[in-house]
Design a protein around this nucleic acid. Sequence first.
DNA 1: TTGAAAGCGATACCAA
DNA 2: TTGGTATCGCTTTCAA
Lengths: 332, 332
Amino acid sequence: MATIADVAKLAGLSRATVSRVINDHPYVSDEKKKLVKEAMEALHYYPNSTAQKLRSQKTETIAVLVPILTNPFFAYLLEGIDTVANERGYHLLVCQTRYSQEKEIYFLNLLKTKQVDGIILTSIENDWNKIEGFSEFGPIVLCNEFETRANVPTVRLDQVYGGYIGTRHLIEKGHTKIAYCKAKYGKNFSKLTMERELGYKMALAEYNIPVREEFIIREDTDIEGGKMTLRKMLSLKERPTAIFTGSDMVAAGVITEAKANGLRVPEDIAVIGFDDQPIAEMIEPQITTIKQPILEIGHKASKLMMDIIEKKNQENEFDSLLSLQLIVRAST
Amino acid sequence: MATIADVAKLAGLSRATVSRVINDHPYVSDEKKKLVKEAMEALHYYPNSTAQKLRSQKTETIAVLVPILTNPFFAYLLEGIDTVANERGYHLLVCQTRYSQEKEIYFLNLLKTKQVDGIILTSIENDWNKIEGFSEFGPIVLCNEFETRANVPTVRLDQVYGGYIGTRHLIEKGHTKIAYCKAKYGKNFSKLTMERELGYKMALAEYNIPVREEFIIREDTDIEGGKMTLRKMLSLKERPTAIFTGSDMVAAGVITEAKANGLRVPEDIAVIGFDDQPIAEMIEPQITTIKQPILEIGHKASKLMMDIIEKKNQENEFDSLLSLQLIVRAST
DNA sequence: TTGAAAGCGATACCAA
DNA sequence: TTGGTATCGCTTTCAA
């Protein structure tokens, strides 16, 4: 494999001049530039990016920590982050934590060893005091998940409002026995879930409906979790008439299982999802849901991260809060 | 940021000794080892991975080229590749080609500049003669998509068989007017699509059913593409009674649009999907489909790639062909 | 406009 | 068992 020295020798010039040509620096005569280009061509030379990184002390790579890629929510978030990153020539290292605290720490170490210029966290598995120390080694940006104690830039959604409008919608539809399904695993430090639940309780309080702990169900945030949720609901002595789930996948699972049990949606049980994923429009009945602008928070977090890396983050907000929107369909 | 030299100085030892401790080399006395570890601790030292990469000439990073992450098929493929890669300490660079030939070439250049140790291609956008030259710069493995002219290791599925069993199933259900929906964009060089179509035609031939070109529809491989497909079918003077689509997403779109047009599935139009994604079980009617072992081909391709990088690819097959399976549900 | 050489931070050979 | 030093491939200052 040819190196810059080989090119320099063939062109009869110095490595410095070759480097200048590679980096389009001024003060290289057209004549020498031509010589260098010919030599690069002849030797099939391509600059070694690792050497460039060592020298420049930057990797132009961002690690994005997601719990799991096959959850469409995170696939879309990554898509949003990637679009903007790619435009500016950055690459993304995908790091699936699989809801594991150890893996999260393992990936955070990428910052210490300078394998990446920064880390975007889309979920939080460890207590914040275990994480915050890493920001000394490079920029951390929170995207989606957040943490009140965190002193790092954050792009998030107004989950309290989301929980509130969803619940209020169900109440306005006449429901008073409203179940709330929240995440089971790996969300021990999720402010997101807590805030959404807060919104749920705020709405209930506003209409003087007491909170019933047995109506709060913890399950996995996937289709199976949705099915389990419905089964748990059916086992209650007094059944809820509506359920507010944490994602469209869960809502889809609830609906599928409800139909399998001969229940009509929304007549016997109303269901509301979260996210507004494609699936919400595809199953029957179509799912009433809270639309999250996923791509937008991805774009924003990505831009924010790169601005910080390149130290041109003058105009960025430190904590930006985007709004949510209720999409009414047939499941409520 | 502390370097190995700082650690050496504080410990009163040489950089070589510190390096030995970092890499757990033998021939370091426990006493010195302790000194080094204390110094590393005191200085919050972490080895710079870029320097290690430059020295070792390996990145332990693999680039995976996918058309688009938000297509669940590719999310699962990535998940499969990532699981095995992570176990062996490799990282994944996600590269979305977005069906663009330019982007594919751009990402293939990661090999020339040695940013990654190898590239896994899950789709092919350019003609193979544009791609093959890159394999001189590092290993390329084909996973899912394939190419007969390619002289690179390949992990793929038996698409001819998939096209065949799906079509045969429709024929056995009594259909003779069977449409076939294939990809519209960016699949110009997709052997995968061609083979599947070959299986479709083989089945037709076996039952002496003539191929009708107007029944072969080109559309996007997503939900919208499915809706468009159905509209195109409705515009034909003689309508097919069944359709074989290239993915469950397309099948879902076809079904959604069919219902919107007052057609019953499968009575008025039978639909068969491909992949067996979660959505296949969630929409009504549930989708008959061809199940692809996506995770498995991901695992296999990932292992194959790392074995090649580490030159222990003795026992790997060069071209492994995994089988497909028909899952009969309610849409046919 | 060009080149010599120091340096980025680690590893490994060869000596001691 | 330990250390000196060349080396990986590139960039950038300083001098010419």
